[in-house]
Design a protein around this nucleic acid. Sequence first.
DNA 1: TTTTTTCTGCAAGTAATTTGCAATTCGCAT
DNA 2: ATGCGAATTGCAAATTACTTGCAGAAAAAA
Lengths: 138, 138
Amino acid sequence: MVDKNQELRDKGLRLTPQRQLVLQAVRELGHATPEEVAEKVRSTHPGINLSTVYRNLETLENVGLVQHTHLGHGGATYHAAEELTHLHLVCGKCGSVGDAPIETAASFVNTLIDEYGFKTDVTHFAIYGTCESCTAKS
Amino acid sequence: MVDKNQELRDKGLRLTPQRQLVLQAVRELGHATPEEVAEKVRSTHPGINLSTVYRNLETLENVGLVQHTHLGHGGATYHAAEELTHLHLVCGKCGSVGDAPIETAASFVNTLIDEYGFKTDVTHFAIYGTCESCTAKS
DNA sequence: TTTTTTCTGCAAGTAATTTGCAATTCGCAT
DNA sequence: ATGCGAATTGCAAATTACTTGCAGAAAAAA
């Protein structure tokens, strides 16, 4: 447990229960909106304020422990930095978020660099479309 | 001018000056947030209400004349349907939006269908990263 | 024209996120 | 252990971006 403490301390952050809970929630949830993170945290610690969740997500992002993306509509979704090993396949119908390995996009990403000088940020890579089950339904 | 009139009429829409101005603004701007569209429209017709702009963007999207994507942060950005023949390369640094032909992604898109059953919506395809000039600056 | 129906402007309403500030809590230095 | 100063929290109000209800204005149909 000293490890996990150090992880935050090393970044110059204080170790508050709220902070730890937010980070833990993001890690457990995989993908989550601030609202979902708050809900998760509250399932064990009801008193935690929403703005504390927002502030911690921002702080944790600043030190590189989590990141956010804009998948589909309005809300940002957060994930732990370690989790950024896949692409997000966002379904516009049902809102689900599927995963695919980053390598799937490797040659595409290379083409963009070579031909357009554009360096794709794979950690922000969100692909919009329709998932398999929604396609089947229609 | 009868042509442009028909274009809206054929979709079952009324031909109001506001509507025409919104559509024209989207076409001229290429990529734009509702706010930017409103600003453009107001540069020639100051009295137009922001909610009219929002409503028309929605209406025009319903009939397929414009489309929106979520590039980067909060706001949606709209473009004319005719413009949807390229991918959007969104620079996270400077906010610029570059273009690349859709074919660039063709094999990537096919892989996603074949292996994950995920049908990418290329019209919504926004790729996040850093553009050439911002890369050069840093 | 007159009628019908859609559209617009305005004001109020939401939803999501941010901010100001006082009170609390953490971590370092006694 | 204890105290101090800075970081952090909770709360309420503020902001931002967008939506909605409604009455009157303006298209299109009759």
